[in-house]
C-alpha cells in the first residue's frame, strides 16, 4: 500500500519533470533541442553509478550478516542498475552524434560506463548460470565487491588512455563547453530527484517481486 502511494507520487513528479524538460527549460543556444537529452542522461548516469556502490555495500552487509534480505536487495539493485546503464549508454550515444559528430569516443567516462554495463551483465549472468544456493549468493556478493573495487581502477586507466589519444570530436561543440543557465540547472536537479525516486521505486518493486519468486521456490 505504502509502495503504491509512493509509486503514484513518483508518477506525478515524473510528469512534472517532463513538463519542465520540454516546456519550461529554455532551449540551449549552441546545441539546440538535442541538448534536452541531458536531463535524462545525467540522472541515469548518476543512478547507475550510485547503484554499483550500493550493491557493493549491500553485498558487504550480506557477507557480514548472511541475511538473505541483503542478497535480494543486491540482486534488485543490479537489475535496475543494468536498466539505468542501458538508458545512460543509449541516450549518450544518441546525444553524441549531433553534438560531437561521432557516436562514440574513447573518452574515460564512456569507456568506464561501458565496462560498468558489462560488470552488471556479468553479475546478473552469474546469478542465472550458477546453481542456486548459499554458495551462489556468497560468490555473487564477492563478485559485486570485486566489480566495485575495480571500477575506479578502470576509470583511472581510461584517463591515462585518453591522454594518449586526442579526441576525434568534430561536431559543433568540439571546442566550446555548453553553458547552463539557472532554469536549466533547476530542471537538471529536479530530474536527478525524479530519477532517484523512480530508481528507488523500481528497486522496491523488484525487491518484492524477487521475494515472492524466492518464496515460491521452496
Amino acid at each position: 500500500m505504502v509502495r503504491q502511494i509512493y509509486l503514484i507520487a513518483t508518477g506525478i513528479v515524473f510528469t512534472i519533470s517532463i513538463w519542465m524538460i520540454f516546456l519550461w527549460a529554455p532551449t540551449e543556444i549552441n546545441q539546440g533541442q538535442v541538448q534536452r537529452i541531458l536531463y535524462l542522461h545525467v540522472p541515469f548516469a548518476w543512478a547507475s553509478m550510485v547503484a554499483i556502490i550500493a550493491i557493493a555495500f549491500t553485498s558487504f552487509l550480506f557477507l557480514l550478516t548472511k541475511n538473505d534480505r541483503w542478497d535480494n536487495l543486491s540482486q534488485s539493485l543490479a537489475e535496475v542498475g543494468l536498466v539505468s546503464a542501458v538508458v545512460m549508454l543509449f541516450s549518450g550515444i544518441v546525444w553524441a552524434k549531433p553534438v560531437w559528430g561521432v557516436w562514440w569516443t574513447g573518452e574515460a567516462k564512456l569507456t568506464t560506463a561501458l565496462v560498468l554495463f558489462f560488470i552488471y551483465c556479468a553479475y546478473l549472468l552469474f546469478r542465472n548460470y550458477f546453481p542456486p544456493g548459499n554458495a551462489r549468493n556468497r560468490i555473487a556478493a564477492i563478485i559485486a565487491l570485486i566489480g566495485a573495487i575495480d571500477s575506479p581502477i578502470i576509470y583511472y586507466a581510461a584517463q591515462i588512455w585518453e591522454q594518449n589519444h586526442p579526441k576525434a570530436v568534430v561536431g559543433p561543440l568540439a571546442s566550446e563547453e555548453s553553458s547552463l543557465n539557472g532554469e536549466m540547472v533547476i530542471t537538471l536537479l529536479f530530474c536527478v530527484l525524479t530519477v532517484t525516486l523512480l530508481f528507488v521505486g523500481l528497486v522496491w518493486t523488484q525487491y518484492q517481486t524477487n521475494k515472492l519468486l524466492r518464496s515460491k521456490n521452496v
Binding site: 546453481p131 542456486p132 544456493g133 548459499n134 524466492r214 521456490n217 521452496v218
Partner: peptide
C-alpha cells in the same frame, strides 16, 4: 557437532 543446520536451496 553442536546444533548443526544445513539447507540446500531453501531445502
Amino acid at each position: 557437532l553442536t546444533k548443526i543446520s544445513k539447507s540446500y536451496q531453501n531445502n
